[in-house]
Amino acid sequence: MQEKRQLITIKGTRDGFSLFIDDSCTFDTALKELKEKIAAARPNKEDPMVAVTVKTGDRYLDEVQKTQLKEIISEENRFTIQAIESDVIRKADALQWKEESEIKAVNRTIRSGQVLEVTGDLLLIGDINPGGKVVSTGNIYIMGNLYGIAHAGSGMDQNAFIAASFMKPSQLRIADYISRAPDYESSGVYMECALIDKNEDKIIIDRLKRLSHKRDHLSSFERRMKNG
């Protein structure tokens, strides 16, 4: 008789338990074995809660399946699911992720009355004239003069920022924050960036070199993968 392969493996790591689910069997079979495994290993009521990370390998789980899994593991069994990790994502999700993490380069002047909207980061090589507007879901980099309106992180990303060679904007918007130019004539600033200061709870403008301190995730490409 062929030896039955283990469909569910539990391994202890530094960060708690990892629960591996074999990706070659059907989901129902895996669930069934998982129930048995947990029933057998049911820990004592007095034991502390154990956090597990579920790893599904090359299996894609939809929301229904995730809920099923959570129910079995969490329900009265003294386990909590820390995360469900899969090596695969859906093509649509991958494309969306690509769209959101890409830098869109645009080379033109945004004139009065024109609106440029992009998903992801925007690199604008050109000016935004008074009355013009750019909107991006990510960061905005402007190699040119910003006189109009720039709206970064339009999908409520409060970590987004706006950097420009020269800015004398009529309005800056980041996520749901808005700041406008003062009523007196100001001179504008060179090589600065605008971002949300959590302590002051408003948009501040700072020198570009300070950006690396305040937005250290900027250098790592994987930031968006972690976020979403």
Binding site: R111, S112, G113, Q114, N129, P130, G131, G132
Partner: peptide, 16 residues
């Protein structure tokens, strides 16, 4: 004048 330049900018955008 600012208002005139602003409108000219709009027009240039449309002409482009």
């Amino acid at each position: 004048e600012k208002s005139s330049v602003r409108d000219a900018d709009r027009i240039v955008g449309l002409l482009e």
